[in-house]
Nucleic acid binder design. Structure first.
Lengths: 193, 193, 193, 193
DNA sequence: TATGAATGAGGGTTCATTCAT
DNA sequence: GATGAATGAACCCTCATTCAT
C-alpha cells in the first residue's frame, strides 16, 4: 500500500527477519536456561518481543530452535578437537581437556543435557546434529589416545559422549552433585586395566 | 499364602482393596515404563481397570505412587548391601556387585532414573526415600573399600549414586548405549590414582 | 455368626441406629455451620465417625438431613407463634417478636437461609417443610395484626417470610451488614400507609 | 456503525476479537441466567461457539467475566442517580425510583444477586466494582432524602443496597414471591418513626 | 511476513452416589 | 445395618499449533 516501501522492501525484510531471528535465539537461550528446553513457546516469543507465529516460521520444530541456539558452541567445541590434539602433550590430555570443554558447555546450558537424552521425537534433529558434529571429533581423540595405549580400546566415542552427557543432567540443581568431578572419575576409568 | 487373608469379613474387604492396590502398582509400573513417571493418571487408571478416584484414594500424590511402585526393589537393594559386604572377598568387589544390583534395578525400570533426577517438587518424597534408604548402604560399602585402600577416599556415596543413576537414564532406548558398561568404567575410575 | 448377638439384636440395632442418627445430626449441624448446607457428605460422615453409606441410609436426600437437623428449632419456632399472640400486648408486637425469633434462628445457622432460597431440586422437601410448618403460624400473626389495623392487609405470610429469609442470607460474613436491622426496617414498612 | 471499524487491518483483527468478546459476554449472560454465575466454563464457551481457551484469553478470571457481563448496566444505573435526583420532585422519590432501577437490573439478571452476596473469593473484584460504583450513588440519594427529613438518618447506603440485593435473590423462580413488592415495603420502612 | 486470536486436546482433581462385603 | 472402596462425571486450566488478517 505504501509506495515508498516497495523499493527496499526486499532488503528491509531480510534485515528485519535476521534481526528477528537473532532476537529469537537470544530469547530462547534465556528461556531454556530458566525453564529447560521445553520452555513454553509463548515465553520465548514474549521474551523476543515477537508473535508465536514468527517462531514457527523461523524454526518449524523445537529441535530446529534448540540446534540453532547451540550451534555456535557446538561448532566451537567441534573445532577445538583437532586443535587440542595438536597442541597437547599427549592424546590423553587432549581428550581430557576436550571433554572438559564439552562438560562446560552442557553444564552451563540447563536443559540441554536433558534434551540430548530425551527420546521425544521432536529432538531427533538435535540428536542427529550433535552426533554428526561431535562424535567424529571425540572419536579421533579417543582413537589417538587408544593408539598411544593411554586408554582402553574398547570404548566407543558415542557411548562415552552419551555417558558424559548423562552425567551432566541436573547440574546446578544440587550443590552435592558436581558433574565435573564425576566426569573426571569416568575419564579416569578409561585407563587400561 | 498369607494366613490372615482368609478369615473374617473385615479382612476380606481389605483383601479386595489390596488386590486393587496391587493392580494399580502393576499398572503404574507399566505406565511409567511406557511414558515415564509422569504418565497421565487416567492412563494408569485405565491400565489397572479402575476409576481415577481409586488412584487418588490409594496414593494421594504422585510421589506416593512412585515410591510405592519401587519400594520392594529399593528395600531388596538396601538389604543386599550388608550381605554382599559380608560375603565378598574384598569390599571393592562387594561395592561393585552392589552397584550392579542398583544398575539392574534402574535399567529395568525406565522412567525411574528420570524421576530420580527430576527437580519437580512432586518427587521430593521419592528423592528423600531413595536417599534415606540407599545412600547409607552405599556409604558403608564405599567406606569399607576406601579403608582397604581399594578406592579413592574423596568420593561421597551421594554423588556416586547420582552419577550411576544419571548414567542409567535412557537405558534401552538406544542399542549403542549400554549403561552397564559405562557404570563399570565409572567404578573403575574410583581406583586410587 | 456370634450366637449371643441374635437374641437382642433387634433392640441393639435400634439403639445403635438411634445413636448413629444423633451423631449424624450433630455432625451435620457443625458441618453446615462451617461450610454451608452443601457441606461435603464425607465431611459430615467423618465428623460423625460413620461411613458415608450410613448417611444415605438415614437420610436419602440432603434435604432430609437438613430438615432433620433443624426440625427441633423449626418446631420451637412454630410453637412460639400462638404463645406470643396470646402473651403480647398487641398482635403487631407478637408478630415482630416472632419474626425476631425466626431471624435469630436463621442468622445462627449459616447456610440455612441460602438453602431456603435455593432452587436446587434437592431442597424441595426442605422448602415444603418450612412452608407447611411456619407459614401458617406467620399467617395467623399477620392476620391478627392486619385485623387490628396495625399492618397492611395486602402482604402474604409467604412473601414476608421469604423476604425475611432472604435478608438473612450471608449474615455474619460482613460486619457492615446486619440482617436484624434490615428486618426491622422491613417490618416497619408493613405499617399501613 | 462505528467509524473506526472499517479501516486498516490492525483494526480489523481487533474487530474480530471484539465480536468474539461480545459473543462471549452474551453467552455468559445467558449461562449465568440458566445456571448461576458459576456456570461451567465449557458451557459458556459452547454457547458462544468458541473454545475454552478464548474465554481465558479474554477473561482470565471468572470475576473478570462477571464484571464485564454486567458493566454496562452498572454504569447506566450509576449514571441514573444524579439525573433522578435532579429531575424528581423530592429526594425520596428519586431514591425510590433509583432503587426501582437497581431492582429491575438485578431481577432480570438471575444469578447476579447471588453473585453479589457470594463469599467466594473469585467474586471479590465483582463486589468491589459494585460497591465502588453504586454505593456512592445510593449514598447521595439517601443523604439528600435524610436531609429532607424523608427517611431515617441511621441507615447506611451499603446495608440498604445489600438488603435490596438480597431481596432480589431467587426472583423469577417463584410466582408467589415478588421482589419488587418487598423492596417497596423495605423502602417504606425507611420513613422516620 | 508478522501477528496473536482461536482452537481443543490433554492432564489434573474433587466428590456425590452406589454397592460388595 | 454399617462400612468405605470404587466409580466416573464434571470441573478446572494450560499450552502447542494453526490460520485469518
Amino acid at each position: 500500500m505504501a509506495v515508498d516501501e516497495s523499493g527496499v522492501s526486499g532488503a528491509r525484510r531480510r534485515a528485519d527477519a535476521r534481526r528477528n531471528e537473532q532476537a529469537l535465539l537470544d530469547a530462547a537461550a534465556a528461556a531454556f536456561l530458566a525453564c529447560g528446553v521445553n520452555a513454553p513457546v509463548r515465553d520465548i516469543a514474549a521474551r523476543a518481543g515477537v508473535g508465536v507465529g514468527t517462531i514457527y516460521r523461523h524454526f518449524p520444530t523445537r529441535a530446529d530452535l534448540v540446534v540453532a541456539v547451540y550451534r555456535h558452541q557446538v561448532e566451537a567445541c567441534a573445532e577445538a578437537g583437532p586443535t587440542l590434539l595438536a597442541g597437547c602433550d599427549t592424546p590423553c590430555v587432549a581428550l581430557a581437556r576436550w571433554i572438559d570443554l564439552f562438560v562446560e558447555f552442557l553444564v552451563t546450558k540447563h536443559g540441554l543435557a536433558e534434551a540430548l537424552r530425551s527420546d521425544d521425537a521432536a529432538f531427533e534433529a538435535l540428536h542427529a546434529y550433535f552426533l554428526d558434529r561431535l562424535v567424529p571429533v571425540c572419536a579421533r581423540l579417543l582413537d589417538a589416545a587408544a593408539a598411544a595405549g593411554e586408554v582402553r580400546a574398547d570404548v566407543a566415542a558415542y557411548e562415552l559422549m552419551r555417558g558424559v552427557g548423562n552425567l551432566c543432567i541436573g547440574a546446578g540443581h544440587d550443590p552435592r552433585y558436581d558433574p565435573r568431578r564425576l566426569v573426571d572419575i569416568l575419564v579416569a576409568g578409561l585407563r587400561p586395566q
